[in-house]
């Protein structure tokens, strides 16, 4: 006896099921899209996408083609890169760089560092960028060690310069730095501003 082949009824059922399946899927796709659209249209979500995320995509368009590490570091580290590169270029591994008290820079060159709070001056940040390119000293070092300092940052007319110590300027610079608390550190621009708006030392 011949086995019954797939009957038209069976085929029709499969076809109905497939149609039903795809109908459900399409409805779901529409529901998913609409729900997503609704979530993303909520005011805060929309604003976040059109400002922050858009800005990131624009940044990628602007910077994405530049792949060399130095450019990326310059862009990412900002002030820290500028100043640590200056130290790296001008100092030798056996030189001693005296980290000025942060209060001194905030007090005398606030405008220049107000957006970062001079966080790039934090000793570990300098070590992160410079490593053993130079010896780091801070104002808590013993006097004998301070006398070895070869370079520091000095403010002149509200601008920061890399200063090379000479016999004649050393007492003046150290005397000025000693007016400030060497243990103070403002980790954020807000803390730096709070210090700046206080009365002068």
């Amino acid at each position: 006896m011949r086995k019954p082949s797939a009957t038209p009824l069976y085929k029709a059922r499969i076809s109905t099921n497939a149609r039903q399946f795809w109908f459900t899927q399409i409805i779901y796709l529409m529901a998913g899209s609409l729900t997503l659209f609704a979530i993303l249209s909520l005011p805060r979500n929309g604003k976040w996408l059109s400002t922050t995320i858009d800005r990131f995509y624009n940044q990628r368009q602007k910077l994405g083609k530049q792949t060399d590490v130095a450019t990326r570091k310059r862009e990412g580290y900002g002030d820290a890169y500028i100043y640590t590169e200056l130290i790296r270029q001008r100092c030798q591994p056996d030189d001693y760089f005296l980290v000025p008290p942060q209060q001194y820079l905030i007090r005398n060159a606030y405008q220049q560092g107000k957006s970062t709070g001079y966080a790039w001056l934090y000793p570990s940040v300098l070590y992160y960028h410079l490593g053993k390119a130079v010896h780091l000293l801070d104002m808590t070092a013993p006097d004998s060690l301070l006398q070895r300092a070869t370079h520091t940052f000095w403010v002149y007319e509200n601008k920061i310069f890399l200063l090379t110590f000479k016999e004649h300027n050393r007492p003046l610079v150290l005397g000025e730095f000693r007016k400030y608390d060497p243990h103070f550190f403002a980790y954020t621009p807000k803390q730096a501003r709070a210090y700046y708006t206080q009365s002068k030392p």
């Binding site: 990131f56 990628r60 990412g76 570990s124």
Partner: peptide
């Protein structure tokens, strides 16, 4: 965009560059 920004930029947060990345 998260992956691109993460990879393209060096570590920036203060806590990271004086901590784990240091």
């Amino acid at each position: 965009i998260s992956a691109w920004k993460c990879a393209w930029f060096p570590n920036q947060p203060f806590d990271t560059i004086v901590g784990p990345d240091l």
